[in-house]
């Protein structure tokens, strides 16, 4: 192991990556903070207005609607994914026939673009000819009126999102499950532990770290939800299905209110950081333990 290796060559090697994220992400993000404190639109010089933009955004009923929609969709999507992903990981770990083929099938949605996924799910739930609509009708249920009833639109967004991202959650949990040594189960069985007891005392506790990681990543990424909503409902009807990213986009690029959009953006950043605080603290310690012991 090289201790306290020379810094200069290392800096050279990390420079490209650091420059990319610094110039394209970090500096613009800081600039958004400045923008959020100013009044500006295209072609005009920004004027400092303090927290006025935040005040206006926080007083906007559409912002709160978008926030509520985002929180509801994120909570549904992440937790359903976690449950389904866990179930599938345990199913695969218990041994399935044609494992590589099944695995390929389960991973398939990972390859699908948001746009194509919207095409698929829109057609599945087409009010007249959709397969899913017909299946619902066969069960005596009414069609999902996703274009008319806001909560049903959000329900379709959630389903579509779960479908797209389940492969990620599944892979994380499945890999973690495979990493549990088989001897633990043998020992538990020798002690006479039932199926359920083995699940509760061995599998579940050892999967908790992976579940937390999968959940955290999905919280952060689901929070950015934009394309699915934009392409499915466009935030309508009557702005009732907007999520925060759609609200931000409309403020900036349709209503030309860059200050309000920037304030919304900075609120998004802060919310993401708060969500990840636990992870960031752990990461910080880990990084310094690895690189500067």
């Amino acid at each position: 192991m090289e201790q306290r290796s020379p810094l200069l060559p290392a800096l050279g090697f990390i420079a490209p990556v650091q420059l990319f994220v610094g110039i394209i992400i970090f500096i613009p993000a800081l600039y958004v903070f400045w923008l959020s404190l100013t009044e500006s639109s295209f072609g005009q010089a920004p004027v400092f207005v303090g927290l006025a933009n935040y005040g206006r955004v926080l007083a906007d009923a559409y912002f709160w609607k978008a926030l509520a929609n985002t929180v509801i969709v994120v909570l549904i999507v992440v937790h359903v994914e976690l449950l389904l992903g866990l179930g599938m990981a345990l199913l695969f770990a218990s041994g399935v026939p044609f494992r590589p083929l099944l695995l390929a099938a389960v991973l398939a949605p990972y390859a699908v673009s948001e746009v194509s996924a919207v095409v698929m799910w829109r057609f599945l739930f087409d009010p007249e000819v959709g397969f899913a609509t017909q299946a619902l009708a066969a069960l005596g249920l009414p069609p999902l009126e996703w274009a008319v009833v806001p909560w049903q639109g959000l329900l379709l967004v959630s389903m579509l999102s779960i479908w797209l991202h389940l492969p990620f959650t599944f892979v994380i949990l499945y890999a973690a499950r495979l990493a549990i040594p088989g001897e633990l189960y043998e020992a538990a069985q020798m002690d006479g532990a039932s199926h359920f007891a083995r699940f509760r005392r061995v599998t579940l506790p050892l999967l908790v770290p992976a579940m937390l990681i999968a959940m955290l990543f999905r919280y952060i990424f689901a929070f950015r939800l934009f394309s699915e909503v934009w392409l499915l409902t466009g935030g309508g009807p009557a702005r009732q299905t907007e999520v925060l990213a759609v609200y931000l986009y409309l403020e900036a690029f349709r209503y030309n209110a860059f200050g309000d959009a920037a304030a919304t953006g900075w609120l998004l950043v802060v919310a993401s950081l708060v969500l990840a605080l636990w992870y960031l603290r752990r990461l910080y310690k880990e990084m310094f333990a690895t690189y500067a012991p």
Binding site: A10, I14, I25, A29, R224, P293
Partner: peptide
């Protein structure tokens, strides 16, 4: 390589992933 600067920059690299692209 091992150095304090690398620890900080590795943290920065992952921290940056938390910023939503739309922002």
């Amino acid at each position: 390589f091992r150095h304090k600067v690398l620890a900080g920059s590795a943290f920065f690299l992952i921290f940056i992933r938390l910023i939503p692209p739309i922002v």
